[in-house]
């Protein structure tokens, strides 16, 4: 996941890499995602990766509901 200055820069990058445009979120929303995703202490022996359902719930809580975020 890369950082871009603006939508125009994302479009130009996608064109130069011959890639379709993916999902774009503001930095603030990315910060909320990071806090949710990495907020747990991975030193804890009980830590485990989220299940698919738990990951879907994280995405939904942040408004990531388009097909791009579909995990199935």
């Amino acid at each position: 996941m890369l950082f871009f200055r603006s939508e125009e820069h994302i479009d130009r990058w996608c064109e130069s890499w011959h890639l379709p445009r993916g999902a774009v979120i503001p930095l603030e929303q990315g910060w909320q995602l990071a806090r949710t995703w990495y907020g747990e202490d991975r030193r804890d022996p009980s830590w485990r990766r989220r299940t698919l359902e738990e990951t879907e719930a994280v995405f939904a809580s942040l408004g990531f509901t388009s097909e791009f975020w579909n995990l199935r």
Partner: peptide, 15 residues
């Protein structure tokens, strides 16, 4: 709190 402006681009679908 976050300070800064810009966008994040996810190039590959989550799955």
């Amino acid at each position: 709190r976050l300070e800064g402006e810009g966008l994040m681009h996810f190039a590959i679908p989550a799955r």
